[in-house]
Design a protein around this nucleic acid. Sequence first.
RNA 1: GCGAGAGUGGCGGAACUGGAAGACGCACUGGACUUAGGAUCCAGCCCGCGAAAGCGGAUAGGGGUUCAACUCCCCUCUCUCGCACCA
Length: 861
Amino acid sequence: MQRKYNPSKIEEKWQKLWEREQTFAVDEDGTKKKYYLLEMFPYPSGRIHMGHVRNYTIGDVVARYKKMRGYNVLHPIGWDSFGMPAENAAIQHGIPPAKWTNENIDSMKKQLKRMGFSYDWNRELSTCEPAYYRWEQLFFLWMYEKGLAYKKGGSVNWCPACKTVLANEQVEAGLCWRCGSEVTEQYFDQWFFRITAYVEELLDYCDKLPGWPERVLTMQRNWIGKSHGCELVFPMADSDDVIKVFTTRQDTIFGATFMLIAAEHPLVMKLAAGKSVEQDVRDFVERVKKQDRMMRTSDYYEKEGVFLDAYCLNPVTNKRMPIYAANFVLADYGTGCVMAVPTHDQRDFEFAEKYGLQKIVVIQNPENPLDAATMTEAYVDEGILVNSGRFDGMKNLQALEDIAEYLESIGRGRKTIEYRLRDWGISRQRYWGAPIPMITCEKCGVVPVPEADLPVILPTDVALTGEGESPLARVASFVNVSCPNCGGPARRETDTMDTFVESSWYFARFCSAHHDSKPGLDRQKVDYWLPVDQYIGGIEHAIMHLLYARFYTKMLRDFGVLGVDEPFTNLLTQGMVCKETARCREHGYLFPEEVRNGKCVRCDREVTIGKTEKMSKSLKNVVDPNYIIDEYGADTARMFCLFAAPPERDLEWSDQGVDGSFRFLGRVWRIVMEYLDDIQNVAPFDGREELDGDIKILRKKTHQTIKKVTIDIEERFHFNTAISAVMELVNALYQTRRPEAEDAKFLSVIRETVENVIILLAPIVPHITEELWGMIGGKQRLSEAPWPSFDATVAAEEEITIVVQVNGKVRSRIQVAASESDETIKGLALNDQKIRQFVGDRQVIKEIYVPKKLVNIVVKQ
RNA sequence: GCGAGAGUGGCGGAACUGGAAGACGCACUGGACUUAGGAUCCAGCCCGCGAAAGCGGAUAGGGGUUCAACUCCCCUCUCUCGCACCA
């Protein structure tokens, strides 16, 4: 055994070689089938974490596998480099965001390179560079032209003390994270993208993405939230105005006894204006604005309202309906107004009870008739219409259509479709984002920056304090411009774009990452590579990022820039990386090195080992990939991430598990060394001679393993079971007893097995396998070698086990030749001695035979 | 709260389409080799009763469908993700 497994030496050697030989650089090649594999690009936070390692390892296995299968594989990487953390670092430590970001990119790039990922680094991009965001600004101008980008009022979290806008994560229990002041709601004019213009197509294609996990599609459908219903018109009792509501329950219209309006709806103050209730209403509205939006709509939350001293009329009964502002109605769904039917909606019921409002039963329970006076909760099931004029006696669900038509006929409503999806607010009152290329002129109003003047470059000399309005608003040289229209004084837009905008089209940019002429995407290249064949990323992006990217793809298609309807053909959503937490009563959460023998190193108190949670800095349960690479090597880190759990499940980190992965690689290394001298110049077994005994079994196992690993990678991405299969093969190799004399046939079978162990592991642990491959005399680079195929005849089992059950319990097993006829198998099972004993003289009721698997005999008890 | 998932030995997981529950690995136990072992190789290892053969139990908990349920249906519990300004 001349050499020891030395991962750091091997890994560095091959990483350099792949880089020098440009192994993973690609161009369009019409002679090969393309495969575009993409992992969600990282935000450059400073260091890669295990979540990245896992995500990128999964992607790398597929990329390398597809390359071995002969595809022209595009596997790019870049940086989602705009975002809040850079701005926070600047506020806290005075480091300019660009400097902070670029330094982070440098160090993370080094870490990624140490993992041996097969990226085409030539296509690296960073979204905070003008070379990237200039095209985003161009698309913005086109969107503005088409009405897909527009301005309207939108609310933000506002800290009155810092005089600044807060992100949701900067609001802690309703208070500003920095100064602790109570956060209020503030309305600004902001930019929105009209994603709702594509809502039907976005929904339709949820049925045309068979390569996506069903649960992601379900979440997207629910997010879009299409519902069929009616827009109904309620005339005001004392004026010619009307209130419009959206409802899916027009069958209950005869039971609508009052009207509810979202507290923050402008109509509320309008109706209360000048009345004695005005001050009460204003107080109520202010209070509701501070209530948590999620809690407000909860079933258990106290339903509150205030009477607006106004009435409207029920459009079918003409009865007066008092109008209330309510906390559980939301302004941005439907029209922000709701007709209340207390007898058949639980929230309305509770509200009516509290404020003593009228209840009329309109859907009768056929089994247990309802009485409005004695009901204790709303009746929400199906039933027969009553108190509903001409519709009495109909089943309520069947009357939906008729009632809608009737309301239309009397001019009091029309059938409509409502969506939960709202337009995408992209304005951020922040510095570190792509500037919105618009100008506001005193005379001409909102004017787009002319295309020729793009990009609008983000200035670098900006003081960041975390207080006051948008930082850009204080940069005079940026803000003050002359109007492109009239030449008069004008102001630049100082909002920047939501960082989800950058990640909505980066996958297209990778196809022609350095294309520097309009529109930043080379149509020919984009057409060759898109759509992304396999997209891989965290499940946390299941809705927003993926929906925005789908929207952008459709829009850019309509601009003639892309030729595909959907960006990602197949999607793999991976689970979180978790680890147990350690906590000391005195010192809180502890790093693993702060725990010795179950005690805190500082105070010697017992440490509580908590449940496993997502790795995060605050829980101190993070594992540094650099440490793992230094200690075990990248191959072990990759191997463990894949072996510990299937990709879609959460992965629980285990230091001992890492040891186990490392030991397996050592085991592979040693068995190859063991046979190295004997198989170096031997050709793999050609299958022409008969085999028997140990080597026959080994060869069968080899071909079965090729089959299993291929299916596990190709069809399921279940790398954990693929690795298990190779472990079994390696175990079989160890079990195979070496004959006394040198035996050419024997060695050729060993050669075949050893070769396949190495090849099958190549996408998973590329460094060690490339090294071993070279040692056994592999001609080409393993990363360029073809994936093996298996011989189905060799892999087939000759003997199979038939399970014999009595009343569903296993009582015996019989071995039969795989070629045996079903009749014979059945007969053998019935006549099996143990079975005959078991059945005894009980009466056989039924015999179930599952071909080649199982016989179940049902007997009378 | 709403929407979407998940729950299997001491631990990570396997069982792909309703047909052998626990592959593979870790931990643990024993053996071999060794100057030594925390290296390596070999073996054992779900729980209960039992010397063994075997019998019974077991896939978060409860119910159901079925000859047969980790797998399908209903209810409950726990955990994870998303909820529109974290990315």
